[in-house]
Design a protein around this nucleic acid. Structure first.
Length: 367
DNA sequence: TAATCGTGGTG
DNA sequence: TCACCAAGATT
């Protein structure tokens, strides 16, 4: 039976009512639900991408103190924005948001556009986020299909499409187009996601207390634990790294900015290399530094840091050492290096892996 | 289409 | 310890 056939004898109105009533009575009190400022909805939606509500809340509150309006964020320095995002991950979200907010300030007089084509053009705003902004902020009946929605609807209609495939989202968007409440699309979309977060969870869904259990095909068939179908991802690969905390004769610390593209773009770090083989030696590290124009004394290995990303694992041996002589300004510039006071290291946005190094060597240690 | 892009929580 | 997961977008 096709989804269309399932929908023909499926109680849309009853489903909407049961879902919306449950949402009204059970929705969480979240900071971004207390207002309907499109800018604030937008920021919350970007932060919530692949990130749990509990993780986002403190970041969201702090971000709104720093950048309460489109204008405030548009006028901020990118590095300040990255610092506010530090630890939240997926840093291209911060750079894209900042870029897009500048566009809104320039091209739309600071008002977030309420048309699908315009919103979707903004950097970092894809199909889900465009739908979320339109529906939640402007109460426009547009689908906002995220992982929650695909999981819930996979079960409601007993759909076995692989939700890790890009094309699957489109099928669910067309379903939402048919079943969305035209009276309250904002609450309907949020209710679908809230149900996925609180009741229709990935493992052990709480079908017994589900407000829409009588509308659910997977529940009727007893296959709720088998849905949704999702392809497995390959395990992350390990990379051996060596990093060094270097001090010059004035006691300043050497840090380095990462490239503009790729992983952790534009964040700062301690100078490091990827070691092809595991060698208990720092000759390769020393050679790398010399290549950047730096003569150093490496003292000892003081720490190990392990950090797991989605698709790779860094295993970092951490060394300490000292710069010999005066580094040439041009050499530092060329390698995106900077000498900063020990107390100023915290002013720069670091990935968590290098925050760990900072914590151990400079804060806990006596280096 | 499939890989890339972070981090923290959970069972 | 580890596999899996979370209000995805970009290339």
């Amino acid at each position: 039976m096709t989804t269309l056939e399932k929908l023909s004898n499926w109680n849309i109105k009853g489903y909407q009512q049961d879902l919306l009533k449950w949402y009204d009575e059970n929705k969480r009190d979240l900071p971004w639900r207390r207002e309907r400022d499109p800018y604030k909805i937008w920021v919350s939606e970007i932060m919530l991408q692949q990130t749990k509500v509990d993780t986002v809340i403190p970041y969201y509150n702090r971000f709104m103190k720093f950048f309460p309006t489109v204008q405030a964020l548009a006028e901020a320095e990118e590095e300040t924005v990255l610092k506010a995002w530090e630890g939240l991950g997926y840093y291209s979200r911060a750079r894209n948001l900042h870029k897009a907010v500048k566009e809104v300030q320039e091209n739309y007089g600071g008002q977030v556009p309420a048309e699908k084509e315009e919103v979707h053009k903004l950097s970092g705003v894809g199909p889900y986020t465009a739908g979320a902004i339109l529906s939640i902020a402007f109460n426009i009946p547009a689908p906002a299909v995220d992982g929650n929605v695909m999981r819930v609807l996979s079960r409601i209609f007993s759909i076995y499409d692989d939700i890790s495939k890009a094309t699957t989202r489109k099928r669910f968007e067309s379903i939402v187009d048919e079943i969305i409440s035209k009276e309250n699309p904002s609450h309907f979309n949020q209710a679908l996601m809230e149900l996925g977060a609180l009741i229709c969870t990935p493992k052990s869904p709480a079908c017994l207390i589900c407000p829409v259990q009588e509308h659910c095909a997977a529940r009727a068939e007893g296959v709720q634990e088998l849905l949704p179908v999702k392809a497995k991802k390959s395990p992350p690969k390990k990379k051996q790294m060596k990093a060094i905390v270097l001090k010059d004769d004035a006691g300043r610390i050497l840090i380095q900015q990462r490239p503009e593209t790729g992983m952790l773009a534009k964040l700062w770090q301690f100078p490091n290399i990827e070691a092809e083989e595991v060698v208990e030696d720092y000759a390769d590290l020393k050679k790398h530094l010399l290549f950047m124009g730096l003569q150093v004394d490496i003292f000892e290995k003081v720490h190990e840091v392990r950090h797991v990303f989605t698709h790779l694992i860094w295993e970092i041996d951490v060394y300490i050492g000292e710069l010999k002589g005066m580094a040439r300004e041009a050499d530092l510039e060329l390698a995106s290096l900077r000498l900063v006071e020990k107390g100023d290291v915290d002013l720069y946005p670091f990935p968590v892996s290098h925050q760990k190094i900072n914590d151990f060597v400079l804060k806990k240690g006596d280096f």
